[in-house]
C-alpha cells in the first residue's frame, strides 16, 4: 500500500514539475490520437450514416463486419499496418514504419469501425417518424437524411468519445508500428510500459495519471458542448 501511495505522490510531483519528457509524450499522444480520430470520423460518420439509411447491396454483411472489427485487438491492427508498411511490404518504399504516420494509420484502423458502427447504430435507432416529420414539412430526401443524422448526434458524439478513449489508451498498435522511439513515436501508453519495465514505477504512475486526466477532460469538454442535450438526460429512476 505504501508503495502505491508513494508512487502516486511522486507521480503527481512529476506532473506539477512539468517534466519535459512527460509533456512531450503527452503532446505526441494527443497529436496521433486526435489526428486518427479526425480522419476516422471523416470516413466513419458518413459511411455509418449511409449504411444505416441506404439500401446498398452487401449492407448487412458490411455492418456485421464493422461490428466485428469494433473489437479488433489493437496489436492485431498494428500487425496489419506493420505488414503493409514493412520494407518488404506493399508500401515499404514510403519508409513510414516507426513514424507517427504509421501510428495514425493503425489508430484509424482501430477507430474507423467504432465510429462507423456506432454511428450506424445511432442512426438506425431513430424511428421512421423522424423521416416522416421532416418530409411532411417539405424536406428533400437529403434534408430529411440530415435531420435524422442531427437527431442521432448524441449517439455520434458517444461514438467519437468511445473511439478517442480507446485510441488514447491503446498500446499494442502504437508499440508495434511506432516503435516507441524517444522524441518521435513514444506516447503515453508506451512510456508506461517502458517505465514499468525499467522499474520506474512512480514515473509510470505519473504518466498513468496524465492519461486518466486526458480521458476525463475529453468527457468534460464534450459534456460542456452538449450541455443542453444532457440536461434532459435525467437517467432512469429506480424506486
Amino acid at each position: 500500500m505504501e508503495i502505491i501511495i508513494q508512487g502516486i505522490k511522486e507521480g503527481l510531483q512529476l506532473i506539477f514539475s512539468m517534466d519535459p519528457k512527460i509533456i512531450h509524450v503527452t503532446l505526441v499522444s494527443l497529436q496521433v490520437s486526435l489526428t486518427a480520430l479526425l480522419i476516422a470520423a471523416c470516413l466513419g460518420i458518413p459511411i455509418g450514416a449511409a449504411l444505416a439509411l441506404k439500401d446498398i447491396p452487401g449492407r448487412r454483411l458490411f455492418l456485421n463486419l464493422t461490428y466485428t472489427f469494433m473489437g479488433l485487438p489493437p496489436v492485431l491492427a498494428g500487425l496489419i499496418v506493420y505488414l503493409f508498411l514493412t520494407t518488404r511490404g506493399p508500401f515499404g518504399q514510403f519508409q513510414l514504419l516507426f513514424t507517427p504516420t504509421a501510428m495514425i494509420c493503425a489508430q484509424i484502423l482501430l477507430g474507423f469501425p467504432i465510429i462507423c458502427g456506432l454511428t450506424a447504430r445511432a442512426v438506425m435507432s431513430q424511428r421512421q417518424e423522424v423521416y416522416d416529420t421532416a418530409v411532411t414539412l417539405g424536406a428533400s430526401r437529403r434534408q430529411a437524411a440530415w435531420a435524422i443524422i442531427r437527431e442521432s448526434r448524441m449517439g455520434i458524439i458517444a461514438a467519437l468519445t468511445t473511439a478517442l478513449g480507446r485510441l488514447v489508451a491503446e498500446v499494442g498498435a502504437v508499440m508495434l508500428v511506432g516503435g516507441n522511439i524517444e522524441g518521435s513515436t513514444r506516447v503515453l501508453t508506451t512510456s508506461i510500459v517502458l517505465e514499468t519495465r525499467m522499474g520506474e514505477d512512480s514515473r509510470a504512475i505519473g504518466i498513468g495519471i496524465v492519461l486518466l486526466l486526458i480521458s476525463f477532460s475529453i468527457i468534460m469538454i464534450i459534456n460542456l458542448l452538449e450541455k443542453r442535450s444532457f440536461k434532459n438526460d435525467a437517467g432512469i429512476q429506480i424506486t
Binding site: 514493412t86 516507426f98 508499440m175 516503435g179 516507441n180 524517444e182 522524441g183 510500459v193
Partner: peptide, 18 residues
Amino acid sequence: YKNVGKGMGDTFRMADEM
C-alpha cells in the same frame, strides 16, 4: 540515435527495418 525503449528481439527487428 534512436532510443526505442524495447526488448532485444523488437529492437533487432526495428534495426533491420530501419
